[in-house]
Every structure is written in structure tokens, then in C-alpha cells.
Design a protein around this nucleic acid. Sequence first.
DNA 1: GACCAGGCACATC
DNA 2: GATGTGCATGGT
Length: 229
Amino acid sequence: MKSSKPSVSVKLRKFKPADLPRVYQVLRSAYGHQQWWPGETPYEVIVGAVLTQNTAWLNVEKALARLKEADALTPEAMRPMTRAKLAALIRSAGYHNVKADRLKNFLAFFYREYKGEIRLMSKERGSVLRRKLLEVKGIGPETADSILLYAAGKPFFVIDAYTRRIFSRHGLVPNMDSYAAWQTLFQGAVPSSRAIYNDFHAQIVNLAKRHCRASRTLCETCPLYTPSF
DNA sequence: GACCAGGCACATC
DNA sequence: GATGTGCATGGT
């Protein structure tokens, strides 16, 4: 039988939750600290978290660049903008009308609760901030956790499509399990640390982009495959 | 030209 | 509670 895909001669390693700290160490040794999230300010991180919903990061970067060019990448500048103007600037990230509304919804919340100041938002207890973020229309669990971890510095593990893809492939959890189930598993297995959750998630994204795109098979050199693991 | 990408809300059963 | 659908652009 003919196949265009390269054969994989190494064995796929199956992980248990207790392996996760070691998985992080292996990735960190292989690739170094990732210095994440790509964003110059916490507010840029928040905007990026909304714009990347079901969207390739490359297209998000274009939208962020346009916002920056327009000096609109601060809460003060973005808040008075019309929905139409904002949507036009973020067009390249896709779903621009939906995402313009979501950014507006976040801004309304951000000013109502925290006067538009990251410093005040970061003082909020993590569990309380998470509950409040999830009440904002357009902020779901992944976006909320990205904001919590990367903008507010709270130890919440971000479960994204890459995390599910890689670790379900490695037999950790069935891919269809809920977001909460995945997060409970990771947070139970990995010590609660803002710094570790930050870089572990970054390592997962890095790994996925190198090796685990749905349509690619480059797994021979992946550090999570035996015997390199 | 088809398929995919770091979700989410909403309708329906 | 589970499943399906709309939202939209740009790269491969």
C-alpha cells in the first residue's frame, strides 16, 4: 500500500498525568525558555487572546500591527472607537464583526470593574476574576485563562487546541473531554506556578508548530517520542 | 479550490 | 447534556 506520508519508526509514547512535569522538563531542555506571550503590553495580550479565537496567529499579528499603526492598541484609544472602525482594523484576523463586539464587551467590563487599569484587575483574586471574565459575552474558558495567566499573572493553565491535539494523541485524555476536565488534570499534575504554566503552554504551542500540525508528520524528531524522551 | 487555524454563543433536540 | 451552525480571513 502506497502512502505519501513519511513512516514513523519510533514509538509514540503514552503519557500519564504524573508524567507532565517531566514532559515540561524535556521540552524546556530541547527548546529553552520560550519567553512568552508575544505581546509588548498586557492589553496587547488581551486583544491577541480575543483575536486568536479559531484563527491562525499569523493573521492575528497582521491585525495587531494595524491596531498599533493606528495607535489603537491601548484601552484608552480603543474604547471610544466605533465598532465599524475597530472591525475594519482587525479584519485580517477573521470574524471581524464578532471580535469587534467581543473587544467592546471586554472594554465595558474592564472600565466598569477596574477603571481600565491592568494593575487593578491583577489585584483581584484569580478565581473571582475568572468567574467575572466568563460572564463577559465573547470570553470563554480559553480566552479567560489566557487573560488570567498572561495579562494578570494568575496561575491558570491554558488548554488550547494544540494541548488537546498533542496530549490526546499521546493517550493522556480522550480529545472530546471537557475544557474543565483537561484543566483539572493539568493543574493537578503540574505545580501551581504562574511561571511554569506560562512557559509550559508556550512550549506546547512551540512544539505543535514544529511537529504536530494536523496535516503534517514530522514526529521522528519530536522530543516527546522515544527514544529521545 | 479545499482545507485549516491557539473559540464562542446560540438554537435545537 | 450533546450536537450542529454561524461567524470570515488568509496561508498552505
